[in-house]
């Protein structure tokens, strides 16, 4: 019942995000046909021995295999950028920002606030799971159409990494939405945290085992083939803690 209300609140954000992410995955797969045609030219590339040259060489090396191309062009980029934005969008809003559109009606229903947060979180996480997994699974489904193959299991692990990492930002937005009474502040603060966090994690500190963005990109899994259980568990725990915080905040809120 309550999920129905949450679905009505978030369905357009979800549908737009889902369509964007899925179309993006389809585009990346079809793009490989063109990239494959350019591969012979890569051997003639001489980027030099500087740091920039090293980065260009590494990027070029990744394009040589279909798996490397998919990781560098899809899993490392779109889910961590567009995906994070939509995870935050799905977590923003809710009871506090409803204002006159049914806030007191909701509060007069015979359900606890913990259940309200639970329904909101469950619906949002289900939407985010679909958004994280479906585009990832499109890749192995479409790959045979361009004469390539991509393991379902690999796509599934990457999808899981995207889901868990994004769940942290989703949960942060849910928590902020139990603090601020409008839609925009939770959204903008969560985005600011994501951007600053991303810069610190990826540009300053460098790849880490437990970092949210590193988990989202699945870099360790791509390079070693080992599922990053530690990072997944740590980030899932952070998401759960943030949702618990949202529950406590809502339970103590006066309306």
């Amino acid at each position: 019942m309550l999920w129905q209300k949450s679905w009505l609140d978030t369905r357009w954000r979800f549908l737009i995000g889902f369509a964007l992410m899925t179309c993006g995955a389809v585009f990346i797969v079809t793009l490989y046909v063109r990239v494959r045609g350019l591969l012979p030219q890569l051997s003639a590339l001489d980027p030099g021995s500087s740091e920039l040259g090293r980065i260009i060489r590494e990027a070029a090396e990744l394009q040589k295999t279909y798996r490397g191309f998919i990781w560098s062009q899809w899993f490392r980029q779109t889910p961590t950028q567009t995906g994070t934005l939509f995870a935050i969008l799905l977590g923003s809003g809710g009871l506090l920002s409803q204002g006159a559109a049914g806030q007191l009606f909701t509060l007069s229903l015979p359900v606890s606030r913990a259940r309200l947060v639970g329904a909101r979180a469950a619906t949002g996480l289900a939407e985010w799971a679909a958004m994280a997994l479906a585009p990832s699974l499109v890749i192995p489904l479409l790959s045979p159409a361009i004469g390539e193959s991509y393991p379902f299991s690999t796509a599934l692990v990457h999808g899981l990494c995207i889901f868990v990492g994004g769940a942290v930002f989703f949960s942060l937005a849910v928590l902020l939405s139990t603090t601020f009474t409008d839609l925009w502040r939770p959204l903008l603060i969560a985005l600011a945290v994501a951007i600053v966090g991303g810069v610190i994690e990826l540009a300053v500190v460098g790849p880490t085992r437990f970092g949210t963005f590193c988990v989202m990109t699945g870099e360790n899994y791509f390079r070693t083939g080992v599922v990053p259980w530690g990072g997944l568990v740590v980030n899932a725990a952070i998401a759960v803690a943030l949702l618990y915080g949202a529950r406590v905040a809502l339970e103590h809120r006066d309306f």
Binding site: A101, G102, Q103, L104, S108, P110
Partner: peptide
Amino acid sequence: RRRTGFVSDEKDLYD
């Protein structure tokens, strides 16, 4: 709340 019916001042419902 399970045993109470409520109508708010604003009649706020799900638009």
